[in-house]
Amino acid sequence: MTSLILIIISGVLVNNLVMSQFLGICPFLGISKKTETAFGMGMAVTFVMVLASVITYLIRAYLLLPFNLEYMQTIAFILVIAVLVQTVEIVLKKVSRSLYQALGVYLPLITTNCAVLGVAISNTTAVEGGYNLIQSAVNGLAGALGFTLALVAFAAIREKLAMNDLPKWMDGFPGALIAAGLMAVAFQGFAGLI
């Protein structure tokens, strides 16, 4: 149980996907203009990431390893994620049309979100032999929650910055990057936590 709690704290704060591992930067910079959209994206990513962690674990345990197909890992994992995202898209269209429209082109982009594939891969290298099923799922959840936290907090900051008199050359990505950098400074406080 304690190891699971450590995994959660590590995933959300200490090894935050965006702030420490540099994963998921594209959506982080691209979708963080409004807090509601950011939160929606975070939830979609959480859903995909947990499922992806579980399914990739199963595929690795029962298909890749027994048949010595480890070198196929990259191809297999990314295909799983692509299928998963496609499914989420279809489900979201039926269940929450507004969220589907708000996310727009960013939803299929979850496939290329390095955070999802990144977590799936790091599940296999985290400890000797990789995390087991429960640990993989929890790690996926923790990572996604940390991603959501970073995304939503950053969106709130950007909403506030939008009302400022930023110099012209800070507009857009430069300002976002420097703000993200300062945010990362704050997250460094958790570095020695575990």
Binding site: M19, S20, F22, W169, M170, F173, P174, G175, A176, L177, I178, A180, G181, L182, A184, V185, F187, Q188
Partner: peptide, 13 residues
């Protein structure tokens, strides 16, 4: 990480 973000931002400017 903070250095990476900030350096890229400055480079972009």
């Amino acid at each position: 990480p903070p250095g990476g973000f900030i350096m890229l931002g400055i480079l972009l400017i």
